[in-house]
Simulated assay, not measured.
Amino acid sequence: MSDAILAKVRKLLAKAEDAACTPAESAAFTAKATELIARYGVDRALLAARDPATDPVGDRVVDVVAPYARDKVDLLASVADPLRCRCVRRRQGNGFAVHLFGFSSDLERVELLFTSLLVQAAHGLAGTPVPSGTHPGAYRRSWLAGFARVVGERLRAAEADAVAGATGPGAPSVALVLVDRSERVRQRLAEVYPELRTAAPRRLAGTGYSSGVAAGRRADLGGRPVAESSRRALPRR
């Protein structure tokens, strides 16, 4: 990402993360940042279609630690998938090492948004009291599940809007370019993990899901309405 755009996106996300921001202000800052990131992703994909050296397929490892490491990983996956990256979760101590695969520009976008959303989730959980008689850990895990689901939906919508905005007469097929990129990422992952297994779906018993969904909607990641690192602390059990 160019230095100018990177600086602007970081500044917008920093404002969105500020606990002093109202939900509406945070939404506006995050929406603008995500709009810039989505447009940038399409622009870089089209540029790389003409000159592959500008945006190679790569990988990186993100350390995700307790508390709620599994839930943070699920949030990371909800960000990575709409941005055409793939991730493999590996147990590491009391957390995980998440191996991300994708094009360089997309990996950068994932890390930027994931970092910001962890901070926003921490603020959201801190401002959401656990109902009386409810297990705090179970409630927060289900809250994070709802938050991650809506974040993923909103990111997918924002990406679709960016693709639609880049399509015009005489323009290359953005959809075909992105399909090709996704296939190349899949091939790279298969080379590194030829016998990868899909994890079993989780079953969460907490009652915070709907509250997490509402928080995910307030994050307002741009596009159609549907709704400092991976070590950022979330409330403990």
Rank of each mutant, 00 (worst) to 15 (best):
Asp3His: 12
Ala4Asn: 04
Ala4Arg: 08
Ile5Asn: 10
Ile5Gly: 09
Ile5Pro: 03
Ile5Glu: 13
Ala7Tyr: 11
Ala7Lys: 15
Arg10Ala: 11
Leu12Tyr: 11
Asp18Tyr: 11
Cys21Asn: 11
Thr22Gln: 01
Thr22Tyr: 05
Ala24Met: 05
Ala24Gly: 02
Glu25Met: 03
Ser26Arg: 12
Phe29Cys: 13
Phe29Asn: 10
Phe29Ser: 07
Ala33Met: 05
Thr34His: 09
Thr34Lys: 10
Thr34Met: 13
Glu35Ile: 01
Glu35Gln: 13
Leu36Asp: 08
Ile37His: 10
Tyr40Met: 15
Tyr40Ser: 09
Gly41Asn: 10
Arg44Thr: 02
Ala45Pro: 04
Thr54Ile: 07
Val64Ser: 06
Ala66Asn: 09
Pro67Asn: 13
Tyr68Asn: 13
Cys87Asp: 08
Val88Pro: 07
Arg91Glu: 14
Arg91Ala: 13
Gly93Ala: 11
Asn94Val: 08
Ala97Asp: 03
Val98Ile: 02
Gly102Thr: 02
Ser104Asn: 14
Leu107Phe: 10
Leu112Phe: 12
Ser116His: 11
Leu118Gly: 05
Ala121Phe: 08
His123Ile: 13
His123Asp: 12
Gly124Ile: 05
Gly124Glu: 10
Thr128Arg: 04
Gly133Glu: 05
Thr134Ser: 15
Pro136Tyr: 14
Tyr139Val: 01
Val151Asp: 06
Gly152Ser: 11
Ala162His: 07
Ala162Thr: 04
Val163Glu: 13
Ala164Leu: 12
Ala164Lys: 13
Ala166His: 11
Pro169Asn: 02
Ser173Asp: 12
Leu176Asp: 14
Asp180Ala: 07
Arg181Gly: 02
Glu183Ile: 00
Arg184Thr: 00
Arg184Trp: 00
Leu189Asn: 03
Ala190Pro: 04
Leu196Cys: 05
Arg197Ile: 03
Gly206Trp: 03
Thr207Glu: 12
Ser211Leu: 06
Gly216Thr: 08
Arg217Asp: 11
Arg217Ala: 15
Gly223Tyr: 08
Ser229Val: 00
Ser230Thr: 01
Ala233Gly: 02
Arg237Ser: 15
